[in-house]
Design a binder for these strands. Structure first.
Lengths: 167, 167
DNA sequence: AGGGTATAGTCAAGCTACTTGACTATCTAG
DNA sequence: CTAGATAGTCAAGTAGCTTGACTATACCCT
């Protein structure tokens, strides 16, 4: 696209993939920094990804496994960490002796609330930068990719792929 | 991929950060799959990130350290891997006995060419999905974020960090 | 009831992609 | 010529996954 920086050698990459990655990284860095600033020092990207799947009312560990696209062992390790930090707690499932229920602690719920607030603040800043319209268009485009991408991957990528889609 | 999944509890997240992450992941998965299909089995995301910074004419390892935001040790390890795979080679820098020049091998250049082709194919597919206009708008928005984020970084964080940190 | 199989979760080991810390070799400035 | 900065290496540790092997419980069938 724009290529007027021949300063020295070659320009930094500028294709969709790179830009998406960059924007995603920037968002995450901004969010994580704000969370840390809000006193949630335990916050990491991986944990955030998992927490996004835990409903406020709590849920079975196995349900969590279905929703997030990673292995049950990975989830367990993440939960171990979150439990140690006092963000979630695991209780035996009264309906199923094998199962465990994962629930937010008060501290966890506080963090969620702060997280929601921070998300809105960041979004507001983004809207400020590219305008209400631009923002809506952006979200539309991203959602279109998510939908189409999953379909495309089903077609040719095979079973190993990290399909995010909900199933 | 309609959204008729209120099956049970709460919806999956749908904010900018999540969507950006999803889109970025989808792009990467698509790209990596295509690269593997093209015979570049050594390809990984981390390596891709580094390769994106190596100019086709080769460069000093130290220059690479400046451009990419990770530690020199990490870069070295990645280069060790890429060298073992025969993608790049390291030569002593004739102008500086301490330095080493990192250069693509023929195999590396082949991979780059394939990578460029694949990028264009993916981009074409994206354009097909959201239209030429939509695509241009998307890229504009993403670049605006990058610029804004970078500016924010210049303000209060050092050059090394990827912390966006509003402070 | 008894036996097979599926499901829920755990334990252990290993891999990738980083990190920090400590070290060597070389260059440059005073 | 020596002090210090710079380029790169070596070693060890961490986060966030992976696969494989295992235990405990539930469900289903005859």
């Amino acid at each position: 696209m724009v290529k007027e920086l021949d300063e020295k050698a070659e320009a930094l990459p500028d294709h969709v993939g790179w830009r998406l990655w960059q924007a995603s990284r920037a968002w995450q860095a901004e969010f994580a920094a704000a969370m840390r600033a809000a006193g949630h020092g335990w916050f990491t990207e991986a944990r955030a990804g998992l927490l996004g799947h835990i409903t406020r009312t709590g849920m079975r560990q196995s349900a969590l496994i279905e929703r997030s696209a990673i292995s049950k062992q990975a989830i367990q390790q993440l939960l171990d960490g979150l439990e140690a930090e006092g963000i979630v707690e695991r209780l035996p499932d009264p309906q199923d002796g094998r199962g465990k229920l994962v629930r937010y602690t008060r501290k966890g719920l506080d963090a969620l609330r702060d997280g929601d607030r921070i998300k809105m603040e960041i979004e507001r800043r983004y809207v400020g930068r590219i305008g209400e319209e631009g923002f809506t268009a952006l979200m539309g485009a991203l959602r279109a990719f998510a939908a189409g991408g999953a379909a495309a991957m089903d077609e040719d990528a095979g079973p190993e792929s990290e399909v995010v889609e909900s199933k």
